[in-house]
């Protein structure tokens, strides 16, 4: 399973559950924009590592499920935010790490993810539930279960490199991403 396969599944399951999706900067945000692009999607263009806490701050003030998708590079940079995200998240909060072992957006330099057990870190940081999945059906099942629980779930998913050209940059100024998202949240 590659990034595009995973993000298509995540976006579809989140939409079915009436949830919001936040994607970390880089190719993950670009893929979310290209493969879903609903107003309930928030694509980060910068602030690497801050996606979980951003989403957790939002989750405190919505009754809907909130899903985070970030890569292993973002995850490793943002480990200090894991306890804060787990503590701040309210209701259904699902945090998915797509782990390709690379900083693919910057040219494929390796990360330290192969030395790190992110599931154990997430559990230690206070996530109520954790899951490690590999196949599309396992991801779907883990998401459906997590999206039905009023608590925090961390999901680790090793991914293959994604073939073909990356998706283009998010075709909206960040202020438009925020305005559109804010309006969608206010309508709900």
């Amino acid at each position: 399973m590659n990034r595009n396969d995973a993000i298509a599944i995540i976006a579809a399951e989140a939409e079915t559950a009436g949830g919001y999706v936040f994607a970390g900067n880089g190719y993950n945000a670009r893929a979310l924009s290209a493969l879903s692009g609903r107003p309930e999607c928030f694509e980060m263009v910068g602030s690497m590592s801050l996606c979980p806490t951003l989403a957790a701050g939002f989750s405190r003030f919505t009754d809907a499920p909130v899903v985070v998708v970030e890569g292993d590079g973002n995850a490793l940079m943002g480990l200090s935010g894991y306890p804060a995200a787990a503590a701040a998240a309210t209701g259904t909060f699902v945090h998915v790490v797509l782990d390709n072992g690379q900083y693919e957006t910057t040219g494929g330099q390796r990360t330290l993810a192969d030395r790190v057990d992110l599931v154990t870190i997430a559990r230690g940081a206070g996530y109520a539930r954790t899951a490690a999945v590999r196949e599309p059906d396992e991801l779907r099942a883990a998401l459906r279960e997590a999206l039905a629980q009023p608590t925090t779930t961390f999901v680790h998913l090793p991914t293959d490199l994604t073939p073909g050209a990356p998706h283009p940059r998010v075709p909206r100024h960040p202020r438009e991403i925020a305005a559109r998202f804010r309006e969608a949240a206010a309508r709900a």
């Binding site: 928030f42 602030s47 590592s49 801050l50 996606c51 806490t53 951003l54 989403a55 957790a56 701050g57 939002f58 989750s59 405190r60 003030f61 919505t62 200090s80 935010g81 306890p83 804060a84 995200a85 503590a87 701040a88 309210t90 925020a178 998202f181 804010r182 949240a185 206010a186």
Partner: peptide
């Protein structure tokens, strides 16, 4: 829900930004 601790200052800005997107 109106108060939560952060672990680092940048995490605090991110938590605050998320809350603002929800109208806070």
């Amino acid at each position: 829900r109106r108060y939560v601790l952060a672990t680092r200052e940048d995490n605090a800005v991110a938590l605050a930004t998320g809350a603002q997107l929800a109208g806070q």
